[in-house]
């Protein structure tokens, strides 16, 4: 079972080494690929020093394009499972084993690490929480499956989904969109509870200023996605 951990990173020099080391500790059998999305700091150097494979994108493609690069790599190198982990240290690598378990047992194609059980003092702004509730409502409505945390970027996928992502992945704000697209292609998605840590450095890509654009764009994309024929 070949497992690839994909870490998209944009200016995460403060946290990247810590993230890589803790993944190595928890998942020594997995390969780690850092997709450096045009960082202007030392992210790339620090990641390769920590022993990860690094793909350097020549300019900032955005989260969708960066993550997809990882999936193309996984497809070309014949990985069975790919796990997406954030570079800022929010995702606790101890949960990777839980995420890939349903994939190995073949009871699901995609496992999403969901922060709906938040025993940790995971803080998020009111705006963001409202957005999360709104999207979980919209996605649940469109897919007929209850989703609690649609914006989580902590997910594991199997080979079929890797191939699907390598061919087609939304370019920005992909997390929510992808759930509906996968569900439409009849992939089985499970949501598993994980604890999210406070981000340990850097800043969120979603600023208050961009949230409105985010809401409108993702909603539109979801609704148009429903109208799209499933062959695409």
């Amino acid at each position: 079972m070949k497992i690839l951990i994909i870490i998209p990173a944009y200016n995460e020099e403060t946290t990247i080494q810590k993230v890589i080391r803790s993944i190595n500790l928890k998942m020594p059998e997995a390969d780690i690929l850092v997709v450096n999305d045009g960082s202007t700091d030392d992210t790339s150097k620090k990641a390769s020093q920590a022993g990860a494979k690094v793909v350097d994108l020549p300019y900032n493609l955005g989260i969708g394009g960066a993550v997809q690069t990882g999936y193309i790599y996984a497809k070309e190198n014949d990985y069975d499972i790919a796990v997406q982990v954030d570079a800022d240290g929010q995702h606790d690598p101890s949960y990777i084993k839980d995420l890939i378990k349903p994939l190995i047992e073949n009871s699901a194609d995609v496992a999403v690490g969901s922060r709906y059980i938040s025993k940790t003092d995971y803080r998020s702004s009111i705006c963001r929480r409202m957005g999360m509730v709104f999207f979980s409502f919209l996605v649940s409505l469109l897919t007929n499956q209850k989703f609690k945390d649609t914006t989580s970027g902590f997910r594991a996928v199997n080979k079929d989904v890797i191939n699907c992502f390598a061919n087609n992945y939304p370019d920005d704000y992909p997390e929510v969109d992808v759930l509906v697209k996968l569900k439409k292609k009849n992939f089985r998605i499970v949501e598993l509870p994980v604890q999210m840590l406070e981000r340990q450095g850097g800043k969120s890509s979603i600023t208050a200023f961009r949230s409105l654009y985010y809401m409108v764009k993702v909603s539109l994309s979801l609704i148009i996605g429903v109208l799209r024929s499933s062959e695409e």
Partner: peptide, 21 residues
């Protein structure tokens, strides 16, 4: 064109990674 440029960028970066390996 945007879609193609993204694809080209990804393929190029992956190739560079392979070469350096």
């Amino acid at each position: 064109q945007n879609e193609r440029i993204i694809r080209l960028t990804q393929e190029l970066s992956l190739l560079k990674q392979k070469m350096s390996e």
